[in-house]
Amino acid sequence: MNDIHAEYRAFRERQHAQATNARQMAALHLVCGIDLQVALAAGPELKAKFTLRLERALERERLRGMRRHWSYDLNRHIALKQALDRLHGRDTVAGDGKVTGKPRFRRCANAKRRPKAPSESR
Rank of each mutant, 00 (worst) to 15 (best):
M1G: 15
M1H: 10
Y8Q: 05
R9C: 05
A10G: 07
R12L: 13
H16G: 04
N21K: 10
R23N: 13
R23S: 15
R23V: 00
Q24D: 07
Q24R: 09
M25F: 08
M25L: 09
A26C: 02
L28P: 08
I34L: 10
L36G: 02
Q37H: 08
V38Q: 13
A39P: 03
A39W: 01
L40Y: 00
A42T: 05
E45W: 06
K47F: 04
T51H: 10
L52S: 15
R56D: 13
A57N: 04
A57R: 03
L58S: 06
E59H: 15
R60N: 15
E61L: 04
R64W: 02
G65L: 05
M66R: 06
R68V: 02
R68Y: 08
W70Q: 13
S71C: 08
Y72F: 15
D73P: 01
N75Y: 07
N75C: 05
I78N: 12
A79P: 02
A79T: 00
K81Q: 10
A83G: 06
D85S: 04
G95H: 03
G95C: 04
D96I: 01
K98F: 14
V99R: 13
K102N: 11
R104F: 07
R104D: 03
R106C: 12
C108P: 10
N110D: 14
K112P: 06
R113I: 07
R114Y: 12
R114L: 14
P115V: 05
K116A: 15
K116H: 15
A117W: 13
P118Y: 07
E120S: 09
